[in-house]
Design a binder for these strands. Structure first.
Lengths: 126, 126
DNA sequence: GTTACATATGCCGATATTGGTATATGATGA
DNA sequence: TCATCATATACCAATATCGGCATATGTAAC
């Protein structure tokens, strides 16, 4: 097996910096492909390919305007990422990290009190 | 060129669901490798490989305890992800999305008012 | 010292990526 | 109709992945 497809979910789509850049631009408003080409300074086919990935995970919408295709941001799929990282928000804050350390020590002490289940057969079974 | 290495940054490391799962487990406290093997239900070498990636981007720390290697969470690198998605938070909220739509319309009208710089040679030059 | 346990690393196959260049598709204008 | 502009797609090379299995490394126990 290989790595999960970039079109699997927002996590994979957004792992590519160029695609984040595109979203950052679109956050400022809709743009036709050629605008993105000029702004990012990469070839047009490459931009189209990145846009395709973003479209497949629902991060951008297309609107046809004459012979142009105007792309717009749809940030909803980013919410899943936000929801996931948010749960870790507390732990990288200095204050919470300290509290976390204290909790960790307390837990260690509690375990030391038992000291014979150290082998791990806790209760998660298989 | 191929896809960026998974060890490039937190974005790439975390795109793999199994690695997110590992972080989720470690969020509940330190764990030796075998615990993760049992909890995730995958082979030990695979867990070790995922842990290596997480270690290389600084998302986990290792502590040696006898013949066990106890892994712990270090969520700091996740902050970069949070910082990036956070800027989009407003736009997936229903209320803000509506406001956004209004702003978009206003912007369109403003552009319609100028109507001759439509060609785009703004000022980003090459 | 030898055996058992815990973890890491090596090699392999299959896959899908990024970026490039060339070309197809499709709409507009002469 | 024919040329031009805007975008998408096809094909290619190079790469690094994930997962599997076998094995190396290293610690503890007998």
């Amino acid at each position: 097996m290989a790595r999960a497809a970039t079109t699997t979910d927002a996590f994979n789509a957004v792992a590519e910096p160029r695609r984040r850049q595109i979203l950052d631009v679109l956050a400022g408003g809709e743009r036709p492909v050629n605008d993105l080409v000029a702004l990012l300074g990469v070839t047009q086919p490459l931009v189209s390919k990145h846009l395709r990935v973003l479209r497949e995970v629902g991060l951008v919408d297309v609107r046809e305007a004459g012979r142009q295709r105007v792309y717009g941001l749809n940030s909803r799929p980013l919410k899943s990422i936000h929801d996931w990282v948010k749960t870790y928000e507390a732990s990288w804050s200095e204050r919470f990290a300290r509290l976390d350390g204290v909790l960790e020590e307390l837990k260690q002490q509690a375990v030391a009190g038992q000291e014979h289940t150290e082998d791990g057969g806790d209760d998660h079974d298989e």
